[in-house]
Amino acid sequence: MKLALKLVAAFVVALILGAGSAILLIRSGGLGGDVAVGPWETDLTIGSTQADPYTRARVAVAGLLALNRNETIYFTAHRDDAGDKLRISCSYKITGFDPPARWWSITLYGEDHYLIPNPQNRYSVGGETVQRNEDGSFVIHVGPEERDTNWIPTGDGQNGDTFTITLRLYNPDDKAARDPAGISLPQIAKEACAS
């Protein structure tokens, strides 16, 4: 009888530890990846049949309805070009040219993987809404201080101190779909941080 109780107790402990570690891995993993372009990362298995169960679970928790990789490439930045974590108390400048896709968008997400609440209800800038410079380039401002154009607010910190930026490339051109590591993506430069 004592042996049976010990076996049951060991099984329960193993089940709790196994389930707990899987949940921790899935919730803390985010959507980083095996391909990096500057601060941007993507996982080539997202939206494909090659995705393992952990990748599928991470997408279900953080990616929210990821499309097939032939239709969309998702890049996520957790850090700026200098390698520092993206913080809501800092201002950033995202600069570049249109990525090689039919349509693109840049969206901020809080630590909870949801849109960052803000009074302006402004969460994203896309290829059809971004204001461009004369040479076709764009500058997107991210941070707590309001800007006149292309500004995405970082909110008031209710969703944590850090955030991520997701760049979606919808209907990427053939070269980008074959070699996401070979394309030019926007730069993310820190401008200033509040004390």
Rank of each mutant, 00 (worst) to 15 (best):
S89F: 10
Q50N: 13
Q187T: 15
G63L: 09
I23Y: 09
E111Q: 15
S105V: 09
R147Y: 14
A194E: 14
S184W: 05
V59D: 11
A66T: 02
Q50H: 10
E191N: 03
H113E: 13
E111V: 08
F138P: 00
A82Y: 05
V12H: 01
I88N: 03
G182Q: 08
T149R: 13
G18M: 04
G110F: 01
Y114T: 14
A62C: 15
A10Y: 06
Y54W: 10
A4I: 14
P39H: 01
T166Q: 12
K190N: 01
F138Q: 04
I88E: 05
R27D: 09
G63T: 08
D112L: 07
A176I: 00
I116F: 06
G29I: 03
P153D: 06
W151S: 08
H141L: 12
G29Q: 06
Y74I: 05
K6L: 15
V37L: 01
Y114A: 12
E41G: 02
C90D: 07
S48A: 09
Y92F: 04
L67W: 09
T76Y: 06
D174F: 10
A181I: 08
H141R: 15
S48D: 09
S184H: 10
L44M: 11
L169A: 00
L25P: 08
A66C: 07
P39A: 06
A10P: 06
S89I: 10
V61I: 08
D161N: 11
S184T: 13
R69V: 04
P53D: 11
V35P: 02
V35M: 06
G182D: 10
S137V: 00
I116G: 05
H113P: 09
E134H: 11
D52G: 10
R168H: 04
C193F: 05
Y170D: 13
L64N: 14
L3S: 14
Q120A: 15
N121G: 13
G20Q: 05
K93Y: 06
P144H: 08
P99N: 07
D173T: 07
V13Y: 05
E146R: 14
G96I: 04
T45K: 12
L167H: 03
L5V: 14
I152L: 01
I106F: 05
G18P: 00
R102E: 15
S105N: 13
K6N: 14
S184E: 15
I140Y: 05
L115C: 04
D52H: 00
G63D: 03
A66Q: 08
K85M: 09
T164K: 13
H78L: 13
D98I: 01
A60W: 06
D148N: 14
D43F: 09
P119I: 02
V125I: 13
V139P: 02
A19M: 07
G157K: 04
D112N: 12
T42E: 07
T164G: 11
R147W: 12
V8E: 12
G110Q: 04
T42Y: 02
T95Y: 02
P180W: 00
G160V: 09
G126T: 05
L5W: 14
G143A: 01
Q50T: 11
L24E: 13
W40R: 00
